[in-house]
């Protein structure tokens, strides 16, 4: 994995593009050194942490039924309707599965946990046209048999030929990828959760990396549980270029549309509200707004600069 990361860096990412990875690796090394000197807390009762405690060795399953939508920033991609949201997780002493994240906790301390994780890269979902596209990986886009009128000039450069904007149906199919790496969870305060991930492509699809930092705080009261969070995602040039770049692989696409993706910083804000109705039913609402960054939104495939997601409905805990 590290070798992949270094290869990815030596190929394409230079100078300032390398800074986020170097920064995170340094932070991970620093925290690893710090926590190695602390006491193992596998024996510390979770009740002391007050929030987010769950039974180990038990499958937790709940499903929310309602309505939501996730916008699609790509031209030709449809907004994704959301009717059912599963919430599935299992935690052993070290192994865990949580809504698609498969992990192995290397160290569990009172305020820091270090884990190896792997998860599906969801960029491909923007090229899917429906919910089953997300879960089943439908190859709904990109046959290569496009019939775009070859432009005589770059888009916008000529008023004689009107060029139809590039759509996701016009380009070659993008593949799903599985990312893996290190996750660091920190709890500087009992109500604050900081999560950092450093991930690289494990499947040789996009050959890129991404880094996520998420700060979330939850407050429980008579109005239920409210959680708000802020995220900052960095995605490497290789990752962005694989999904949103346009080049020779997209046969039939005029060269005027060719685009080389660039590394991006993508901030996001999240909020969720969970109001218990009884022991098993709850009312849930959640929302997320993510800005895409110019390296992605400048792509001829993109027509929006942000992605918004919301859902509201009732949740049943099995």
């Amino acid at each position: 994995m590290l070798r992949n990361t270094l290869q990815g860096l030596s190929h394409k990412d230079i100078g300032v593009k390398r800074a986020p990875l170097v920064l995170l690796i340094s932070m991970l090394a620093l925290f690893s050194a710090t926590i190695s000197a602390q006491e193992q807390v596998l024996e510390v009762p979770c009740e002391e942490y007050e929030t987010g405690c769950i039974d180990t060795r038990t499958w937790h399953l709940s499903a929310s039924i309602g309505y939501g939508e996730r916008s699609n920033p790509l031209r030709g991609g449809k907004a994704l309707p959301i009717y059912l949201v599963p919430d599935i997780y299992y935690y052993g002493d070290r192994f865990f599965f949580d809504n698609g994240i498969l992990g192995l906790s290397l160290q569990q301390r009172s305020r820091v946990e270090t884990s190896l994780v792997t998860q599906l890269n969801l960029e491909r979902a923007y090229f899917a046209s429906n919910l089953t596209g997300i879960w089943l990986g439908n190859q709904t886009s990109g046959s290569g048999d496009v019939s775009l009128m070859p432009p005589t000039d770059p888009p916008g450069g000529s008023d004689e030929t009107e060029i139809r904007p590039l759509r996701i149906d016009d380009v070659a199919s993008r593949r799903w990828a599985l990312d893996g790496g290190v996750q660091l969870d920190m709890y500087p305060h009992k109500l604050i959760h900081v999560r950092m991930q450093l991930l690289t492509d494990l499947t040789g699809v996009h050959h890129g990396q991404q880094m996520n930092i998420r700060l979330a705080t939850a407050r429980e009261g008579h109005l239920g549980l409210l959680e708000v969070g802020a995220e900052l995602n960095w995605k490497s040039r290789d990752l962005i270029d694989y999904y949103y770049g346009v080049n020779e692989r997209d046969s039939g696409v005029p060269t005027a549309f060719y685009y080389e993706g660039r590394a991006v910083w993508q901030p996001a804000l999240t909020a969720s509200w969970h109001y218990p109705l009884n022991a098993q039913w709850s009312w849930v609402s959640s929302g997320r707004l993510q800005w895409l960054g110019s390296g992605m939104s400048d792509s001829p495939l993109a027509e929006r600069r942000h992605v918004s997601t919301f859902f509201t409905g009732v949740s049943y805990r099995f």
Binding site: C46, R57, V85, Y89, D98, N99, S105
Partner: peptide
């Protein structure tokens, strides 16, 4: 008598 508890690392409804 009861299983050990630990913190949940993931977020509910984080699949989207």
């Amino acid at each position: 008598l009861r299983p050990r508890q630990r913190r949940r690392l993931g977020s509910p409804w984080s699949v989207f």
